[in-house]
Design a protein around this nucleic acid. Structure first.
Lengths: 257, 257
DNA sequence: CGCAAATTTGACCAACCTCAACAAAGGTGG
DNA sequence: CCACCTTTGTTGAGGTTGGTCAAATTTGCG
């Protein structure tokens, strides 16, 4: 991956190189690569920091290291977390419209940001880049729809179980006795993501613990002891006959807008 | 738009031609057009009919005439309407994954369906088609996020007001005294879309009527008398300083996946 | 070790749901 | 064109889930 130009002495991989490796398909034209490097804008943030406070122009952000939450402001004191994103993901932060949007770092983050419009313009002429953006946007849409189902028609317990199963797929570490989760977000983040309160999150986690489905240790460590049991409580269809389509569960494991 | 091949004697426009006119950018290559005609699958449905009952392969459906609702089945007796779509829109009906999905006609419908995979494959080589699909998918994502905000953090009244404002933008007919809506969906459809019950929809419409914001006549006719007032009750940011970005409110008016 | 922030737990409350009865709409057949 | 009838929508009474407020407890950092 010889993509460095004026190679800065890097201890670890530079965010821009991580972006190239993660997002650019090998068929992307050389001219598009150069244009992307022109548009790329490196961004760092520390935990809790608002990356695009009042986001005035839509942006596409690639997460090289760390994790973030994308928040919509429904009103004073009412935030809705639209999505969580981890290293390797691409996030679309929309410009203010009917609501305002902000991207917050959940911990120290290294990112590469692009103004959305020139990026989409570039995709108009480069089919490989366009296809990559389309694929990721479709994944984001699938996740957003899952969230719609959860918020519209699921109980508090089902929402929490869905959240845990979803996080297990994305950042869970397989383990002899289930799956280990080290959540970078607080209870408030989870509550604002699931349309609940921190108290309800706490109570539901307690119930799932009492039911033997998980064990907690400290603030952020959760061991999932019975993933199928959790999926059942999440109101998911029984697994096993999932189709192998373009957007099947497996395809959703990594990276999305 | 000379896209007819073996011109069938058509009284009105054929669905496939409507699709070509609505969706295909003029730059789409001739070879891609031919391939699209191969993949296209005309579909008709009457009101209430399930178009893809248990949707096994992901599909992209273009609505030539009529309107539809995309439904996710959270469980027996618990449906969530993910989106409504009208003539000119493109809908992605996902294959069964964690939940099952079905597309229902809201009235008599003429559509053109595609298996999603070959369509995306075609977009991989044709940048213009890819860009069109990307643009529409981004709109769908923006709408889905709006719904997430509504379901996660809005009261029943705010949800109903948001719904009305959104429908006004899509199918409202401007009128000397506000905006006239002729809703093709039932109260149940609205309830399943907003994560509420039909009784709550009815009561909230009653309150908005008593507040002088709208007038109803019959089951489906609603006259919106005070759009700014409704937008305020919807919890929207005050209008006026909306950015002109790729996905600003105006750009969302028509067509999406 | 001390402390501020995060989380848990408990008691109470309200928004919305459930169940039930009623009214209106609008299609059908006479 | 009208009476009937089914479907859809409205209204009311009471229950439940999850929210609110407050206090106790834990975490993990300095």
């Amino acid at each position: 991956m010889q993509t460095l130009r004026s190679a800065p002495p890097a201890i670890c991989e530079q965010p821009i190189d991580r972006f190239v490796a993660d997002v650019l398909p090998s068929e992307v034209s050389e001219v598009a690569r150069l244009r992307l490097r022109e548009l790329a804008q490196p961004v760092s943030a520390i935990g809790g920091e608002a990356v695009f406070s009042p986001c005035t122009r839509s942006r596409i952000v690639h997460i090289a290291h760390g994790s973030v939450r994308l928040v919509a402001h429904a009103s004073e004191q009412r935030d809705q977390v639209l999505s969580f994103h981890f290293a390797g993901d691409l996030v679309l932060v929309p410009a203010r419209a009917a609501h305002g949007y902000t991207l917050y770092a959940l911990g120290a983050c290294e990112m590469v940001a692009f103004a959305a419009d020139p990026l989409f313009e570039l995709a108009r002429s480069d089919a490989a880049l366009g296809h990559e953006l389309l694929t990721r946007t479709l994944r984001a849409l699938a996740r957003s729809r899952e969230k719609t189902i959860a918020l519209g028609r699921k109980t508090a317990q089902e929402r929490v179980a869905s959240f845990l199963v979803g996080m297990a797929e994305r950042i869970g570490v397989p383990d002899d006795e289930g799956c280990l989760l080290d959540l970078p977000m607080t209870r408030r983040d989870i509550a604002d993501s699931l349309g609940l309160t921190i108290e309800t999150i706490s109570r539901q986690l307690g119930e799932l613990r009492d039911a033997g489905l998980l064990a907690t240790s400290g603030r952020s460590r959760i061991r999932l002891l019975d993933l199928p049991g959790l999926a059942a409580r999440a109101g998911h269809l029984p697994a096993g006959h999932l189709s192998a389509g373009h957007l099947s569960a497996g395809a959703l494991t990594k990276s999305s807008i």
